[in-house]
Amino acid sequence: MQSLTKRRFGMGVDTVACVGCSACAIACKTENDVPQGHTRRWVNQRVEGRFPHLTMMVWSDSCQQCDDSPCVDACPTGASHVHEATGTTQVDRNKCTGCKACIAACPYGARYVRPEGYVDKCTLCIHRLKRGERTACEEVCPTKAIVVGDLNDSRSELSRRIAARHHRRQKVEAGTNPRFYLFT
C-alpha cells in the first residue's frame, strides 16, 4: 500500500482528445458499483454558433474536487469531509443522513443519493490511488484524455499539462476553486 502523505489530487481532461464516448462513465460504474440511473461521471458536449460556423467542446465531467468545497461546508454531520492525505473530498457513508444539503450546495450537480440512502460522488478512486493504480476512468480512456495527479507535485503529469496547455475550469465564479482542469 502506497502511503499518500499530504498530496493535493486533481484531475485534467484534454478536450481535444476527448470524444465523449462515455468509456470513463461506464468503467466508473463497474468499478464503483454506481447504481443504475445514476452517474458519478458523465459527458458534456457544448456546441456554439450558427450553421455552418460552429465550434464544439466535448469533455468528461464529474466532481470537481474543489479546494473550497461547498459540500464540505454545508454538511451538518461531517460526512462530507476532506481526506487529509489526498486532499480529496469524500463522503463517509457511516455519517450521512441523506439530508441533501451537499447536493444543494454543489454547483456542478456532481452528487447523488444512492438507493441505500446516503450520498455518493466521484471519490477519485481513492481506493485505487492508495494501491498505486490509476483511477478507473483514466485507465480505460481510449484517447488518454483523462489524467489524475498531485497538484502539489510539479513533476506530475497533471501539473506539467497545466503548465504547458491552455486550460479552463468550470463555474469558478461560485468560489469553489476546483481542481478539475479542462485542456483546450
Binding site: C21, A23, I26, E139, V140, P142
Partner: peptide, 10 residues
C-alpha cells in the same frame, strides 16, 4: 492496449 471503449466496459 489496456484501454477500452464504453461498450466493452459495459
Amino acid at each position: 492496449r489496456g484501454r477500452l471503449c464504453p461498450r466493452g466496459a459495459g
